[in-house]
């Protein structure tokens, strides 16, 4: 153990790193879920004529309210 660094300090450091890692992971999870939800919204629900026509058959077969 390096001089001047106590076991408690090392433990605190490890806890901080774990908390930061968990925070980053949660942010990544929320981001991925948001992108997924956005894709589902535009492909499944958006009512612009172009999107509606292009996605028409898929919307009917996957049970989205279409018209």
């Amino acid at each position: 153990m390096p001089s001047g660094v106590t076991a408690k300090e090392i433990e605190m450091n490890a806890m901080t790193q774990t908390a930061a890692k968990t925070g980053t992971a949660l942010a990544s999870i929320v981001f991925a879920a948001l992108v997924g939800a956005t894709v589902i919204f535009f492909a499944g629900h958006a009512q612009s004529a172009t999107l509606h026509d292009a996605a028409h058959d898929m919307r009917h077969s996957t049970g989205f309210p279409c018209h």
């Binding site: 992971a25 999870i29 991925a32 997924g36 939800a37 894709v39 499944g44 292009a54 996957t62």
Partner: peptide
């Protein structure tokens, strides 16, 4: 377009599902 959008909608579902796995 049906093939493309079916691929897209399932990619959206896939992202949500994998986000659930990660959680």
């Amino acid at each position: 377009l049906t093939v493309l959008f079916t691929g897209l909608i399932y990619a959206g579902y896939g992202l949500m599902l994998v986000a659930g796995f990660a959680l």
